[in-house]
Amino acid sequence: NRMHLVCPMNTSPQVDPQKSGHSIWEEFSMSFTPAVREVVEFAKRIPGFRDLSEHDQVSLLKAGTFEVLVVRFTSLFDVKERAVTFLSGRKYSVEALRSMGAGDLLNSMFDFTEKLQALNLGEEEMSLFTAVVLVSADRSGLENVNSVEALQESLIRALRSLITKNHPNEIAIFTKLLLKLPDLRSLNNMHSEQLLAFKVHP
């Protein structure tokens, strides 16, 4: 009857079968809530984000938080060792996580991590890219799509000029980064499917 919740935002992938579904979910929530709050704090510092309507700020954050977290937590995925570090600091091998039910999402996360790390972005570049990721999140339900698109364009322009300045001979990095956006969207969709399929029994 052993259950698993294979998400590095959890302290451990193993779930105590004695605990109720409610308390498992409460504990998991306590683990990922600080990470979500950090994404909100990050969003607040994106120039122009607070000028969007409150409704659109919330919509973008709802749609884009996971994508931002994927970028931020690629450091938890050790591509060489094929292992993932969970919140407790303990590392679990891909084989171990597979035996706990991890599937395609895990492979896709490693692919994404490997490609992103290969670009060797600096801190400022990564931060600007992450801002682009957030404002490029799914547009459904937005009140003012034009304002979001204007913000997205200005951030993409800033990213392009930063990459051009830092890597004058490697402008392909910029194109590769923009191609990460659809990858993130598909990771987000896979993650949503996992969430919907996850059931905790009382």
Binding site: S29, F32, T33, V36, R37, V40, E41, K44, E54, Q57, V58, L61, K62, A63, T65, H191, S192, L195, L196
Partner: peptide, 27 residues
Amino acid sequence: FSDPASNLGLEDIIRKALMGNMEERPE
């Protein structure tokens, strides 16, 4: 649950974190 974001209570966390700073903003 039909909406993964609702499943995680994401909207509630986001609204609280956003509003936390709004209260501090001078009008």
